[in-house]
Simulated scan of single mutants.
Amino acid sequence: MNRYQAFMKIMETGSFTKAAEELGYTQSAISQMIRALEEELSTVLFLRSRKGITLTPDAEEFLPYIKAVHYSYRELEEKRREMQGLQKGIIRIGTFSSVSSNWLPDLIRDFKARYPSVRFELHQGEYTSIAQLIKEGSVDFGFVNPDAQAVSELKTIPLQQDEMLVVVSQNHPLTCKEKISLRDLVDEAYILLDEGQLSVPLEFFKRENLHPNVQYRVHDDYTIMSMIESGLGISILPKLIISRSPYCIATLELSPPIVRTISLAFKNKKVLPIASRYFMDFIVERYGRTS
């Protein structure tokens, strides 16, 4: 299995030398592993040039299968370590910024108070990329919006609903209005939070046959709030992320309100590492709808 691990590490680092350093092998040993894998697959996997390492067309075709073998073996190793006790577990989570900045710090702190040796890997993304990470086994589970199409093949546990608020600069004329509708926003420069294939605000604009004036598409909530503070436009963001905003901005409630659901998503809880199963239960206990 070392040759699959070497392949994945070379892809991650873009270098045979860096892969060898991180895995604790000599560069010669890494090269031998890749040659053995190439012989097994009867093809060449990497092309070297002055610009670095690139995959061959054959390697691109084999990539999903190599990933599957690599992640399956990693799950097998996790299961073996699980037999040695929960204390040695690694919990891999796909998450987006509002959850990772508001929920996860306290959850991790309290969970580690019970299980001090458990380690965490947080993979930041949006609904679509998080769903893909779960499907391919890069993470054990993740936080998603269950309405996203990419999540449809996964099992989900709803946690909480999160209201979406209009965010404007503090001196914006809209702050004088008692009620804000989507129609009030269509002429404003709109800063869109890139959430993958699903944008909750855009879905609601579409339902009302409205077209926002999207001037910017941004991946980070905090960058959007900074841009709004500078008067570059307005946006609609989740209340959860705004609750800890350090920016001088104003928030307005929509009428009718827009709400997103935050859920846990996973493939098969029964085969997850025990530490991840325990942490999922811990999350549901803390933030589940019945809590």
Score class of each variant (00 low, 15 high):
M8C: 10
K9F: 04
M11R: 14
T13V: 08
S15M: 04
F16V: 06
K18A: 08
A20W: 04
Q27C: 03
A29M: 08
I30N: 01
S31E: 07
Q32Y: 07
M33K: 07
I34L: 13
A36T: 12
E38A: 04
V44N: 05
V44D: 04
S49M: 06
G52Y: 05
I53F: 10
T54L: 11
L55V: 05
L63K: 15
L63R: 13
K67G: 05
K67F: 13
A68V: 08
Y73A: 09
R74Q: 14
R74I: 11
L76M: 12
E78M: 11
G85I: 06
G85T: 07
Q87W: 10
Q87V: 10
K88H: 13
G89R: 02
R92T: 08
G94I: 01
V99T: 01
V99L: 03
V99A: 03
S101T: 12
L107R: 02
I108L: 05
R109S: 05
R114D: 11
R114N: 10
P116M: 10
S117T: 11
R119I: 07
E121M: 14
H123W: 07
E126N: 15
E126T: 01
E126Y: 07
I134S: 02
I134K: 04
K135N: 10
K135A: 13
S138N: 09
V139T: 04
V139C: 02
D140P: 03
F141I: 09
A148K: 02
A148D: 14
Q149S: 11
Q149I: 15
Q149T: 13
S152V: 11
S152K: 13
Q160C: 08
Q161I: 02
N171F: 12
H172I: 06
P173V: 03
T175M: 03
E178T: 13
L182H: 08
L182V: 10
R183D: 12
D184S: 05
V186P: 01
V186A: 03
I191L: 03
L193R: 05
L193S: 02
E195C: 11
E195L: 08
S199N: 04
S199D: 01
F204M: 06
F205E: 04
F205V: 07
F205H: 03
K206L: 12
E208I: 04
E208D: 12
N209W: 05
N209T: 04
P212V: 06
N213K: 13
D220N: 14
Y222R: 09
Y222G: 00
M227H: 07
E229A: 09
I236Y: 02
K239R: 11
L240V: 05
I242M: 09
I242N: 02
C248T: 11
I249W: 08
A250T: 05
T251Q: 08
L252V: 01
S255W: 08
T261S: 09
I262W: 00
S263R: 01
L264F: 00
N268W: 10
K269V: 10
K270I: 09
P273A: 10
P273W: 10
P273K: 06
I274D: 08
I274T: 12
I274C: 10
R277Y: 03
F282G: 00
R286M: 12
G288L: 13
R289A: 14
